[in-house]
Simulated assay, not measured.
Amino acid sequence: MRHHPPGRCGVIVSLLALVLTLSGGQVVNSAPAVAAPPPTHASEVAAAEDLAARDLAGSLADTTWRSHVRRAVLASGEVPVAELAGTAHKRLQPRLAEADRRIAEAKGLDEGVGPLLTLRLGTDAMRTALTEGVVPWVAVVASDDEARTVRAYDSRGAVHLLDARTPPRRPVYVVDIDGAKALSAGIDVLKEQLGRYGLTSATETGSAPTTVSPLTSAPSAAAASGFWTTRITSVRLSDDEEPWTKGDAEIYTLVTGFGQDGKVRVDPVDMPYLDDDGVTYHPNQVLVNWSLYKYNLADAVMMEDDDGTNYRDLAKAIAAVLLTVTDQGAYIPLVSAVLDAMPDSWWTDDDDYVDSWYTLARADNGVRRGARGNGSMTVEPYFVEQF
């Protein structure tokens, strides 16, 4: 699920699209068995994924290893491929470990995040051919929803350009990143870096849990101390067509407002359950902890995490803009400031803007539709007791 504005397609891309249409969505170009050209992806993450895909494709010439990988992929949705190679392909494992290291560094993650590269089957329809022993190709996950082609490699090193919308009949493994793992680690880095830039209040009267117990009424006089929150009882994003290589979405929301000290604060909220468009989820997740905010109003900007995100750069970009905003004694919406902080490249191959909610109020109770019309949330006030 990706939600960035459409990219520009040049003459070459248009011609490729025409060839794809005439070829029925199958192989556009099957190069001779020569070394693949160097990756053309702009980001270090994409380059590392591309190199890993080529190495993996070449390794599948080994029939024993190929059978080992096939069993693992058929048994699991996503396979941590570096760990798999560590037990069955000692020559490949160091190359995959190096790719993992490059990816973690490019994303600004701490060294302890562990392996990130995963391998999965492109579509469920490919399972039969894979089970029957057809040698799979290895593709790199499409980094752009507007991409017309997907690059895949075979075990001889040849490059094949596949239709991004119509999967081939041949089984294809997709090299990707464990998005949930990367985002969880990235949220930790983001919180740490935002704190360093002063975008978290010095005074915090409570920290909101990710999920809460069933709804209770407002606290009575005898109730223990606590704090008011806004929690999401349901959330849904619009359905969007995207390349068949894309895996589950990784969604997070930046909640912004003025902290108790009068300075702008940003609270990242991970939403790991929000995998698919067109599905209504009921997370009972706390979105805003009002004890952290000066006013009873806050904004929320929902983003989708992509492979190329560097969380340290994200925090720096946000801080560069939001630190210039001062408290004028009345609430100022901050959605535009957050969006202005995003580098131009993030509207193409990196984090994608999903939707935004202006002036969420502590008293909001009901459906709130996003300003972009791409998402809707049902929210309610919820009091979290502290014992």
Rank of each mutant, 00 (worst) to 15 (best):
M1S: 12
H4Q: 05
G7C: 07
R8L: 11
C9R: 14
V11F: 13
S14Q: 03
L16N: 10
L20C: 09
L22I: 15
G24D: 07
G25S: 06
G25Y: 12
G25C: 05
V28N: 10
S30C: 07
P32K: 04
H41S: 15
A42F: 13
A46M: 12
A53D: 02
L60E: 11
L60M: 15
D62E: 10
T64K: 14
W65M: 02
V69P: 06
R71Y: 11
G77P: 02
V79G: 00
E83I: 04
E83N: 02
T87G: 13
T87I: 11
Q93W: 07
R95G: 04
E98C: 01
A99M: 06
K107Y: 05
G108R: 11
D110P: 08
G112M: 03
L116S: 00
T123M: 06
D124M: 10
M126L: 06
T128G: 15
A129V: 01
T131I: 14
V138K: 06
V138L: 05
S143Y: 09
A147I: 07
T149W: 13
D163I: 00
R165D: 12
V175M: 14
D176V: 03
D178T: 04
A185K: 00
I187H: 04
I187G: 06
D188Q: 15
V189E: 10
Q193P: 02
Q193S: 10
T203E: 15
T210Y: 13
T211L: 06
V212P: 07
P214K: 07
P214S: 02
L215E: 11
T216E: 11
T216Y: 05
S220M: 09
A221S: 14
F227I: 02
T229N: 05
R231P: 08
I232P: 01
V235G: 09
E242D: 10
E242P: 00
E242Y: 09
T245V: 01
D248N: 13
A249L: 00
E250G: 01
I251K: 09
Y252R: 03
L254D: 01
V255E: 07
G257Y: 06
F258T: 01
V264K: 07
V266E: 04
D267A: 15
M271Q: 15
Y273S: 10
L274K: 09
D276S: 09
G278N: 02
V279Q: 10
P283H: 08
V288P: 00
V288W: 03
W290K: 00
K294N: 00
K294W: 01
L297T: 11
A300V: 04
A300N: 07
V301P: 09
E304I: 05
E304K: 05
D306F: 02
D306W: 03
D306Q: 08
D306L: 05
D307G: 08
T309K: 11
Y311C: 07
K316C: 01
I318L: 12
A319D: 10
A320M: 03
V321Q: 14
L322H: 12
D327Y: 04
D327Q: 00
G329L: 07
G329V: 09
L334Y: 05
D340S: 13
D340M: 11
A341M: 01
P343Q: 04
D344G: 05
W346H: 11
D349Y: 14
D352P: 00
V354T: 08
D355K: 03
D355F: 02
T359P: 06
T359R: 15
R362V: 03
N365S: 13
R369L: 12
T378W: 10
T378R: 12
V379M: 04
P381C: 05
Y382N: 12
E385G: 13
F387P: 15
F387G: 11
